[in-house]
Each structure stands twice: as structure tokens, then as C-alpha cells.
Computed example of a mutant assay.
Amino acid sequence: MEHLVNPLVKDVQISGIRKFYNMVADIEGTISLTIGQPDFPTPMHIKEAAKQAIDQDHTVYTHNAGYLELREAASEYVWDKYKLSYDPANEVIVTSGASEGIDITFRTILTPGNEVILPGPVYPGYEPIIKMCGATPVYADTTQNGFRLTADIIEKYITDQTRCIVLPYPSNPTGVTLSADELQDIAELVRGKDIFILADEIYSELVFDQEHVSIATFLKEQTIVLNGLSKSHSMTGWRIGLLFAPLAISKHILKVHQYNVTCAASISQKAALAALTAGKEDAIPMKEEYARRREYVYSRLQSMKLDIVKPDGAFYFFIKLPEGYPSSLEFCLSLVKQEKVAVVPGDAFSPLGEGYFRLSYAYSMDTLEKALDRIETFLA
């Protein structure tokens, strides 16, 4: 019966990140720097809020968009942090992780034949959904611009079919972000055009040397903002995303969300409420530790004479392959076989990622030190 499966689904491939992780998972003694997941436990007060929610029987459906008190807290959170103003009654949707937010956004705004501009290299979670909507991902080459998708680059890729531009900053896999001036230039470029901006800001609380700025500050009417608690509050498994959009857009996204999942998990929503209120600053000590790790890893990679762009946020380095390796996959396989360190081949992040590999530093200093010692031995 497989021949009857939707061909758009059959063409979708498993994420290159997970594919490589699974490939090397059974190699005994391997140190893995592959997964982008905080290594901190969820803060205790958040877990206690979830336990209390269970005891109080908050185990039924919520409003499709999520508990109103949670949407109010989310609205207040992005105002306090980023000066974004959204009506919690009808411009905020609590999603089952930011991944569902990506899905329901694309299914709302895309039709067959549309094009979506993405920075290349980029997180692999966008392309499959774009294709399943019958649209075409268009990768804009950022490799000669410090991995920054700026207005002058975007302009080269805009066509009559362009429906959306994806701005995931800070970026997975590069860790770079965009400045307020760069975002304002993009806003002026697309203002008034029939083009949406999908601003994936899941790493917004993990920016080290500057304040995070959202493009919605400059172009709210055309922007859909995605955020969530996975990275900021170490809540990856709780699956809580936050979607912000003007009413004219959000009212349609809500319909897709309703028929997709009905609502985000009620217990996780209660935990999220604690995260956004009592835990508003929970990300700060984690960010400080990531910044410390970044400096250590950066110093070690520099000493190895590797070609790198220092990340502004998140917890990744995207590193150019040393000479002598025909592909990122071959380099990563050689590294894991010889020194038992796993990193992610760059081609997992679009064809423009070929020639690089991604290293996650969301691991303890002890783990990073051992892994980098092995990488140094390998390169020598």
C-alpha cells in the first residue's frame, strides 16, 4: 500500500541531525555533541506547578489557544522583554512546541507554487513542511556574510512567488543573530509587499553580547513570531510554544491549530504559567553558563586553527571543515570512528551547510573538555 502514500510525504527525509545521532548512538564510549538540548534540569518551581496542576485535576481540554491566564502572561513577557504588544485574547496561541507553530503557520499562509526564502545553512525543520504545502524552499546563501541573512541578500531572491521569509535568530546551526539596524532594513525591504515574515525566536533569551530584538518591533502587521520555553527554561519535553501574530493572521492560524492538536497539554500549560511569571528570569543563570562555555570552546577551536564565526547566542558553533575531507559526512564519520566524538555534518542544514560541521556546547565543561581534547588529537 505504500504506493498510495502522499508523494509529498514520501519525499520527506528524516532530519540529518537525528539521522547522524542514530547512526553513531551505539558506538560505545562516544561523546556526543550533536543534540541542541539544554543540559540543565527544568527549574523546580515549574515542576512543582505541574504536580499541583495534576493534583487539582487540571487534566481537561483548555481553550484552543491555551489558558487565558497563560496567554496574558506570555503577552506580558514579550512586552517586558522585547517591547512587543499582542492582545492575549486573540493574538497569542499556545502551541505544542515551536515545531507545531512552524507547521500551522506554513499551512495557513502557503499555497502550491509559493516560495519561502530561508537563510542557508538553516535548521532542517522548515523545508519538509514547506514542501508538504506544495511550496518551494529557496535557500539564500549566507556563507559569505557571516551567516547573516541581511536585506541586500534577501532582495536577490525575492520573486513574484515569494510568500514568506524565515528569520531564525539567533540561528541554529550558526548561533549568529541580527542587529536592530539589519532587522529594520529587512522590514523596509518587505513593507507593503505580499510577504510574511516568520520570525523564529526560540533562542531569544540566549543572546550573549547584545539585547535580542524582534523584527516584529518594526513590521508587526506582516510578522508571525514564534517563541517557546524549550531553550529558555529547559523544557524541551514539555512541548510549549508561543505564537504571536496580528488578529487578521492569528484567527486563521488558530483554526489550523484547533484541528491539529485541539490545544497544548493542560499540565504543561500550568507549568508554563509558572515559567513566565515566577520564572521570568530563569534563563539568566543558564545563559551565563552557556556564555562561559562559548568562550572556552571558542578559545580551543581557535587554537586548533579552525575557521569559525563566533556565535552571538544559542549554543552552537558552525565550523568549516579542515582541508582534506571531501564531505562533511566523511569528516564526521572519521571523527567518531577514530576519536569517538560525534558532531553533526553540515549538510544536515541544507546543501549550503556542506563543508561545515555543527558542534553543540549544551554540555558540561567536563564533557566539552574531553571532547575537544579528542578533536584536537584527531586534527593533529
Rank of each mutant, 00 (worst) to 15 (best):
153 I>H: 00
66 G>D: 06
359 L>W: 08
323 E>A: 15
195 I>L: 01
244 F>G: 02
93 I>Q: 12
95 T>E: 04
307 D>Y: 13
89 A>D: 15
145 N>T: 09
84 L>A: 04
116 V>D: 09
58 H>L: 13
284 I>Q: 08
268 S>I: 01
378 F>S: 06
290 Y>H: 05
375 I>V: 15
103 D>P: 00
21 Y>I: 15
327 S>F: 04
170 P>T: 11
372 L>D: 05
121 P>N: 08
139 Y>L: 10
364 S>C: 00
291 A>V: 00
73 A>L: 02
40 F>Q: 10
213 V>D: 02
119 P>S: 02
138 V>L: 00
358 R>L: 07
18 R>G: 09
379 L>D: 13
272 A>H: 03
168 P>G: 10
247 L>Q: 12
55 D>I: 10
66 G>N: 07
374 R>S: 10
136 T>L: 08
182 E>R: 11
151 A>M: 09
275 A>V: 11
138 V>Y: 00
63 H>W: 05
197 I>S: 04
315 F>P: 01
300 R>I: 08
272 A>P: 04
321 L>I: 11
362 A>T: 01
311 P>D: 13
10 K>Q: 11
19 K>E: 06
348 A>I: 00
2 E>N: 13
67 Y>W: 12
272 A>N: 11
222 Q>M: 05
112 P>N: 09
346 G>Q: 05
248 A>D: 14
10 K>D: 11
102 I>K: 14
357 F>W: 14
344 V>Y: 02
252 H>S: 13
327 S>Q: 08
304 M>V: 15
42 T>H: 05
28 E>H: 06
350 S>I: 03
39 D>M: 12
237 G>D: 12
94 V>W: 04
341 V>A: 12
352 L>K: 05
227 N>Q: 04
4 L>M: 14
61 Y>K: 11
81 K>L: 04
200 D>Y: 01
46 I>R: 06
90 N>D: 14
58 H>Y: 12
12 V>F: 07
260 N>M: 09
87 D>P: 03
242 L>D: 05
132 M>A: 12
143 T>C: 02
259 Y>T: 06
361 Y>P: 05
14 I>M: 13
336 V>L: 10
90 N>V: 03
344 V>N: 04
32 S>N: 08
309 V>S: 15
88 P>L: 00
251 K>V: 00
379 L>H: 15
333 L>M: 10
149 L>P: 03
161 Q>P: 01
150 T>R: 14
131 K>G: 01
88 P>A: 01
15 S>N: 10
223 T>S: 13
78 V>F: 07
298 Y>R: 09
279 G>I: 03
148 R>K: 15
199 A>E: 15
369 E>F: 03
135 A>F: 00
240 I>P: 05
250 S>I: 00
274 A>L: 12
193 K>D: 04
165 I>Q: 06
219 L>E: 15
212 H>G: 04
123 Y>L: 09
214 S>T: 05
123 Y>N: 03
280 K>W: 05
340 K>N: 14
339 E>Q: 15
308 I>N: 11
303 S>N: 08
91 E>L: 07
280 K>R: 10
175 G>N: 00
203 Y>I: 02
123 Y>T: 08
179 S>H: 08
57 D>Q: 15
256 V>P: 01
100 E>F: 09
314 A>K: 05
331 F>C: 14
352 L>F: 06
141 D>F: 02
352 L>E: 04
332 C>H: 12
1 M>Q: 13
98 A>E: 09
177 T>W: 12
231 K>N: 11
